[in-house]
Design a protein around this nucleic acid. Structure first.
Lengths: 169, 169
DNA sequence: TGTTGATTGACAGTATACTGCCAATTTAGC
DNA sequence: GCTAAATTGGCAGTATACTGTCAATCAACA
């Protein structure tokens, strides 16, 4: 078999940034699931909980902007978090359309308990690299995500949450 | 509002590798969809087609190993590709369990036509970075995916396809 | 003030991803 | 050769993601 190495077009797939980012995302999720098996929480649910803790009383639309997750997807995420009693959804008195999100005590406790596991996740993802390379990759990755923000379907708008808080206070 | 900058825990989310890889994957998919709007093809379907072209007569299980996609997921991907007549599924004569995958003429033509768009996708993903940084990031990313291969739910096994070909020839 | 336009949350539909489970089939061990 | 274990593809169930659409509601403007 002389053509073991000339899989040709497959190499183009294996070295394409799009393919590599997909693989890394899958790997990161797999590590998260493994480390957090004891807690009934997914990566997206974790990010949502952190954002709600940081911005108590945020609504779903603003939450989606703050963590850059799709608003439609977030609907079911919020529903699951509410079913598990980690958050509460209260109608806003001054606007009958919006529902304000608050962390419950159970949600707060969960975040406290899961933090060490999540720290291990982030550490394990980059672990195979040399420390200097980890730093380099992370810096470039942050830059790239930021510079590509507008190419995303749901660009990150961290300020929107403050706008919202400005209303109430 | 004095605490604009101390969103504290959100910064931990924004700089976490897991979060950044998720964002980059979403961005990469968004760019793919935009560039390939004229073609009825998703990133996963594209990778599957390339792999089938490279390994004609591969079966679903080996295909999942060659592109490192989940076998269950791949079932519906293959079904969609077959519905769109880009591939054919033929029963293997020597093993009644397996169904062999082949690219059709339409699939072949599609790959030929879509290639420039896919090249633009890969180029656009890294475009915001300086050329030297693109190379650095890509190299580190390739290393990281390779070193984390076993942490993936479906590790890449490029050789399995050759094993399979060894049977028939 | 009354209508238009925007916003919010909900829903339907499609496409990954992953976990399990299952039947048919093949292979391995005895 | 016969049974047990492994393989293959399919299916059900859950969880992202994204596209649309829709009704209720609010805001802005004529």
């Amino acid at each position: 078999m002389p053509n073991n190495r000339d899989n040709g077009t497959m190499d183009a797939v294996y070295t394409a940034p799009g393919y590599l980012f997909r693989r890394m995302q899958q790997i990161a999720v797999a590590i998260f699931v493994e480390e957090c098996r004891d807690f009934d929480l997914t990566p997206v649910q974790y990010a949502a909980l952190i954002a709600i803790r940081t911005h108590p009383g945020i609504d779903a639309t603003r939450l989606s902007a703050v963590i850059a997750f799709d608003r439609s997807t977030l609907g079911s995420v919020i529903e699951r978090l509410e079913t598990k009693s980690y958050i509460e959804r209260k109608p806003a008195p001054e606007d009958k359309r919006v529902k304000l999100l608050y962390l419950t005590k159970a949600g707060s406790n969960l975040l406290r308990d899961i933090t060490p596991a999540v720290d291990r996740v982030q550490s394990r993802i980059l672990q195979p690299l040399k420390p200097a390379d980890r730093k380099t990759l992370l810096t470039l990755l942050e830059q790239l995500v930021d510079l590509n923000n507008e190419s995303s379907r749901v660009p990150l708008r961290a300020e929107d949450a403050l706008e919202h808080l400005g209303r109430g206070s």
